[in-house]
Design a protein around this nucleic acid. Sequence first.
DNA 1: GTTCAATCCTACCATCGCGGTCGGAGATCC
DNA 2: GGATCTCCGACCGCGATGGTAGGATTGAAC
Lengths: 167, 167
Amino acid sequence: MIFTTKAEYGVRLMVELGRQAKAEGAVATSLKAIAEAEGLPLAYLERIVALLRKAGLVESTRGAHGGYRLARTPGQITMDDVILALEGAVAPMNCFVDDTDTSRVLCSHEADSGRGCATKLLWMRVQGGVMEKLAQTTLAELVDFSYREQAATLPNDPTSRKPMTHA
Amino acid sequence: MIFTTKAEYGVRLMVELGRQAKAEGAVATSLKAIAEAEGLPLAYLERIVALLRKAGLVESTRGAHGGYRLARTPGQITMDDVILALEGAVAPMNCFVDDTDTSRVLCSHEADSGRGCATKLLWMRVQGGVMEKLAQTTLAELVDFSYREQAATLPNDPTSRKPMTHA
DNA sequence: GTTCAATCCTACCATCGCGGTCGGAGATCC
DNA sequence: GGATCTCCGACCGCGATGGTAGGATTGAAC
Ligand code: SF4
Ligand code: SF4
């Protein structure tokens, strides 16, 4: 599996925030509400949303009736920022994890083989492809998609999808 | 990390076979020689090359002076075949692992959320980007690249080799 | 000013896939 | 027959991942 659940849960969280942003104005949404709506463990989500907050993608208000809201509009949020914040790096291979190292630290294979690593070319292309797709996708697209999916799967179901409100 | 060492070792193995294919004619190369040249554990390589053989990418001759050779010319081998053979699937998320399921098996989230999964759109784009890059890259390119890298790094000093942990 | 709901933070833990090893059974050439 | 080399299945240690526990802090409401 390419991405961990950190990415999955984080993106789902962002989508949910995007929906809320459209519904209500600047009201903050509590993590508890999201955790229940998405069926995710609250304690784990807390750790995930911390990453998004540190990256400046969401803002928080503490205390009762506090919660989270998007720092920018969904249209201004691209998924490469989100994934980078969540996963740290998109590294197809361990020679990519060292983000500080722009280039030229040889792994032991390169070092003692005497020649450069041919496969690195492949991994760089793959990583480029991934980053490209991520950068092309905005949160707004995913939010819209979630509305379309919702309409397609349950055209009329009054029981679910009540807007999440406090109190 | 996106790919495991199975992919890395497997691709390096293929590149090595590609070099051999250019050098000698139809002579088989023993795994032991490759393991020593690349500094990889022989017993582990055996298990990896078995995947490539089952996928029809390499052929083998048993017994003394036996070994492996490419089933096709490097120019006819695209990396999507190689990676698919090695990793089984390029799955950014667990909803992709089920290759038999062309569509419409809901994961538990989709099932009990009542709406489709919005993030799936993102993962599908990413997977598409990866597969595209893989399909565009042939083994011949990597082999050529390995020759160029060798020419570029060998003349230079062998002292500035900062080894990285792993491999 | 107490209470309650929420964000925050750190440490801890169980599971499982991954990377790696071992031993042995066939096949082939000398 | 011995030397290689491919094949195969079972086994194992470790580390990251996913998840939990507990508590400190903040702030709105009553
Ligand atoms: S061997 Fe090549 S792909 Fe693997 S870590 Fe080293 S540079 Fe990267
Ligand atoms: S929640 Fe969405 S991304 Fe995650 S497994 Fe289910 S369908 Fe795939």
